[in-house]
Amino acid sequence: MSIQHFRVALIPFFAAFCLPVFAHPETLVKVKDAEDQLGARVGYIELDLNSGKILESFRPEERFPMMSTFKVLLCGAVLSRVDAGQEQLGRRIHYSQNDLVEYSPVTEKHLTDGMTVRELCSAAITMSDNTAANLLLTTIGGPKELTAFLHNMGDHVTRLDRWEPELNEAIPNDERDTTMPAAMATTLRKLLTGELLTLASRQQLIDWMEADKVAGPLLRSALPAGWFIADKSGAGERGSRGIIAALGPDGKPSRIVVIYTTGSQATMDERNRQIAEIGASLIKHW
């Protein structure tokens, strides 16, 4: 067993022997301040990774656009098919120029040779490549099948209805392509620590998230040296922004954090800054 596999296998073990965790309302004060600064709703939840206990939450059962955070769930569904012998990570998928959609920095470079399922998941999570996500959605049967996968996990809230990039439209009061912070946090925890996926697939999923290259201005910008984070960000229309993450000190994750916002007129930089400040408060009061 590799060191990384050992780390993920012992996530519940280490967490069980940690000192009790206590909620700190100071972080919620910052979440509410972010709402004021952005002029928009902000949803927040913080779960203990081992027990699933909610440590703090704000608007945990209000719907927010998922945006690209759905790509972690998508690759979880792909990995479940791999575990069941219905898919192979090494299978190569070929596609054409007509398949390319807006923001496809990886797939646009491989029109000639195609990409493997493993490479597509890596591109979808680490670079948020939209064509990679659409190609992977095709392998599982489309958005409705991802929703069905989530329902089978016990998540009857999260739903995907459309493809990239239309799913980022974020129309107010439109339930399409949305989740709730509580539902997303619980589902992410199941994917990373539950028995739904094999140990190898859980490790692969967290490795992809740990290698995320496009979430630097968010929670990662607030992390002290030595902290662990595996995350996936999302951005959408109407001032929408979000991030889902597993993080913790001492090089291992111990909490799940989900943050979503929508309806702001603020710039992307300002949305990023507010999420980073929430992260800084979380870490300060850990």
Rank of each mutant, 00 (worst) to 15 (best):
H24G: 09
E26W: 00
T27E: 02
V29D: 15
K30N: 14
K30E: 10
K30R: 13
V31W: 06
K32T: 10
A34V: 11
E35M: 08
D36V: 11
G39A: 07
V42D: 00
I45H: 04
L49S: 14
N50P: 05
G52L: 06
E56Y: 05
M66A: 10
S68G: 09
F70L: 01
F70A: 06
K71R: 01
C75Q: 08
C75S: 11
L79H: 10
S80V: 10
R81C: 09
A84K: 13
Q88A: 11
L89M: 08
R91I: 02
R91L: 09
R92A: 09
R92F: 00
H94T: 14
Q97N: 08
N98M: 01
D99P: 11
V101Y: 03
T107E: 15
E108I: 13
K109M: 13
D113A: 05
M115E: 00
E119I: 15
L120K: 04
I125L: 14
S128L: 01
N130Q: 05
L135A: 08
L135S: 13
L136C: 00
L136P: 03
L137D: 10
T138H: 05
G141I: 00
L146V: 00
L150T: 03
N152T: 10
H156L: 03
R159F: 15
D161K: 00
D161M: 00
L167V: 03
N168W: 07
N168E: 09
E169A: 07
N173Y: 06
R176V: 02
R176P: 04
D177C: 03
D177S: 04
M184G: 08
T186S: 07
T186Q: 00
T187P: 04
T187V: 02
G194M: 08
E195G: 09
E195Q: 07
L197V: 08
A200E: 04
R202L: 10
L205Q: 09
M209W: 09
E210W: 12
K213A: 05
A222D: 15
L223I: 12
L223D: 10
P224L: 03
P224E: 02
G226P: 06
G226R: 10
W227E: 01
W227C: 04
A230P: 07
A230Y: 13
D231A: 10
D231K: 00
R238G: 13
R238A: 09
S240T: 05
R241A: 13
I244H: 11
L247E: 02
G248K: 08
D250W: 04
I259E: 06
Y260V: 02
T261F: 06
G263E: 04
S264P: 06
S264L: 05
M268N: 13
D269A: 14
E270P: 09
R271N: 01
R271S: 10
N272Q: 08
A276L: 04
E277D: 15
G279D: 13
A280W: 00
A280G: 01
K284C: 05
